[in-house]
Design a binder for these strands. Structure first.
Length: 568
RNA sequence: CGGGGCGUAGCGCAGCCUGGUAGCGCACCUGCCUUGGGCGCAGGGGGUCGGGCGUUCAAAUCGCCCCGCCCCGACCA
């Protein structure tokens, strides 16, 4: 294509609203324009990149026998009421009414529609397994859209769904997706990490997230450098660093002491001259309307995700100050487990076996020393704490966990029977009995692949996209378009590139070379053939965008040289 | 939803405090010049100053209300 005819509105300066690199570059390079918060138009270049990503996704999905469909984004409320998610999704789901006042929504995902198709049509175990997928627009009313294409309210997702007769079949469908996802992200040039993850509102019991390390990410992943264990921080298990000071020996009796004005863990630590690990942190949560006292070691953080799943809660929230006052008769800074009988008490495993610790006295400005779990109060223990960098890996027992900030580009789930059960999907097995198929679901964020690739591959001049997803593979740039020889050579090389099947662009604009070079670098074309002075010696330059390495090649061989380099 | 910031030409910004002709750089158009990293010279077009109400002889500027966007938090496949 001829650059002079294309709409590639590059900007010298990034718009002020852009914060992260990929967002700045997508705007500057003329890939996208914002329409509203979390809503973007994909212009020519972006659409080309997204189509390339989608093509890779299609090829790998088709390769595992998945069948592409296209489902509606507009869904009737009834489907979502059947699965129970009309209520569960809350404000995250866009809802609307038609002219007859019937409730509709814009689908955030498609378990409901897929399952309804399956239950309407699948009758026999002989029709299983099935893997169905689509590449389609999803809508989510994010509380806070951010970071360009990273977290948006309308986006393109590849979502697939598997239906199997039995768990062993699901294992196979899941593994097929796992392998396909690895190929997809590799082909897109991403350095990804497959990590254990929490299933959240999707349901199910096992899931793997595919993450790309990036400062612009929103998720933390715990990684063990020794054994390769990797899990989303929400899910990660680990052995806490030992207490900084051994507990006092002996069967000591709880003893109240005055702590005037000292409320936080850090303040009490400073006041008592004892490390934070000697304290029991008391948090009051409200689980489905009922108060629960949660205990963790002073220096630890409660994992809301772990807590929520241990409690099998639908909804959790921290208690309000007024509620705390009513239930404990004290402020949040002086709470503790002793004497609490009006609510469930649950403690993190790191407190198991500890003794003679410090906790609040449930009396303003007083704490207790010599508090021993199990003796001074009864509680059950569970893994409730958020892992942190420096913890010991529980998988291998040796490695020290590191934390990485990441972008989630894919997520696969073993759903189990949640949707097939609630929506009545049944088939007959070989014995003629009605059985409920087991399901899996698998998602990839198409725009997130583009964002992550830009985050991973950029420099001060712009994007340095991999050949596989760049909107063009090569740009042919005559330095001086007014020079007839250069112009003609450039045209010939461009034609040769096209003949070789390369996605080629001819920068035929009457611009100064600096402008053309800057633009080519900015939009991230992997190869550039510069036709300039050396043409008199029959040579042109082949410049690689990454690293800006360049080599002289004869005019006649230029296209082939790109072809070779690009497919290497 | 809580906290913070911003809204003036396509982009980046100044002007606002202290009310009085709406400015700068880039981009854009015309001409000349130039052609290996956003070139130079000359001329030119483009703005309901986010919106409404109010104060005032006079509002981008002061007051009130509303809207939008960004960041932090809560939240989240």
């Amino acid at each position: 294509m001829l650059w002079s005819k294309l709409f590639i509105p590059t900007l010298r300066e990034p718009p002020a609203e852009a914060e992260v690199v990929s967002h700045k570059l997508l705007l500057r390079a003329g890939y996208i324009r914002q329409v509203a918060s979390g809503v973007y138009s994909h212009l020519f270049l972006s659409q080309r990149a997204l189509l390339k990503i989608s093509k890779i996704v299609r090829e790998e999905m088709d390769a595992i026998g998945a069948q592409e469909m296209l489902l509606p984004a507009l869904n009737p409320a009834e489907l979502w009421q059947e699965s129970g998610r009309w209520d569960v999704m809350g404000d995250d789901m866009f809802r609307l009414k038609d002219r007859w006042e019937r409730d509709l929504c814009l689908a955030m995902t498609h378990e409901e529609v897929m399952t309804s198709i399956a239950r309407g049509e699948l009758r026999s175990y002989k029709q299983l397994p099935q893997i169905w997928y689509q590449i389609q627009t999803k809508f989510r009313d994010e509380m806070r859209p951010k970071s360009g294409l990273m977290r948006v309210r309308q986006f393109i997702m590849k979502d697939s769904y598997s239906f199997d007769l039995a768990p062993e079949g699901l294992d196979i469908s899941y593994q097929k997706h796992y392998d396909a996802y690895c190929k997809i992200f590799s082909r897109c040039g991403l350095s990804y990490l497959a990590v254990q993850a929490h299933s959240g509102a999707m349901g199910g019991n096992e899931s793997t997230e595919f993450m790309v390390a990036s400062a612009a990410g929103e998720d933390f992943v715990a990684v063990c450098p020794e054994c390769g264990y990797a899990a989303n921080l929400e899910k990660a298990v680990s052995t806490a660093k030992p207490a900084a000071l051994p507990d006092p020996e002996g069967n000591l009796v709880p003893e109240e002491f005055h702590t005037p004005g000292y409320k936080t863990i850090a303040e009490i630590s400073g006041f008592t001259k004892l490390p934070e690990t000697s304290q029991i942190k008391s948090l009051v949560m409200v689980v489905d309307g009922k108060p629960v006292l949660v205990l963790v070691r002073g220096d630890h953080q409660l994992s809301a995700t772990k807590f929520s799943s241990v409690m099998q809660a639908r909804e959790i929230r921290p208690a309000q100050p007024a509620e705390i006052r009513e239930w404990f008769g004290a402020e949040a800074g002086s709470l503790g487990p002793i004497g609490v009988t009006n609510m469930t008490v649950i403690a993190d495993s790191a407190l198991e076996g500890r003794r003679n610790m410090i906790a609040g006295a449930n009396k303003d400005d007083y704490h207790l020393r010599n508090v021993t779990p199990g003796r001074d109060f009864q509680t059950r223990f569970a893994d409730l704490r958020q892992s942190e960098a420096g913890d010991t890996c529980r998988n291998c027992g040796k490695g020290i966990l590191e934390l990485k900030k990441t972008i989630e580009v894919g997520h696969i789930f073993k759903l189990g029977y949640k949707y097939s059960e609630s929506m009545g999907l049944r088939v007959l097995n070989a014995a003629g009995e009605e059985v409920t198929p087991i399901m899996g679901c698998y998602g990839i964020g198409i725009e997130r692949i583009l964002s992550a690739a830009i985050e991973e591959h950029n420099d001060k001049d712009g994007m340095a996209l991999p050949v596989s997803i760049a909107p063009f593979t090569v740009v042919v740039t005559p330095v001086n378009i007014a020079d007839a020889a250069q112009k003609q050579a450039a045209q010939e090389i461009y034609d040769s590139c096209l003949a070789l099947g390369l996605d080629a662009l001819l920068d035929d604009r009457d611009e100064r070379p600096g402008v053309k070079f800057k633009d080519a670098d900015l939009i991230g074309i992997p190869y550039r053939i510069t036709v300039g002075k050396k043409l008199t010696d029959g040579l042109v330059e082949l410049v690689q965008r990454r690293g800006k390495t360049s080599s002289d090649v004869p005019v006649a061989e230029a296209a082939l040289a790109v072809k070779k380099a690009a497919s290497a």
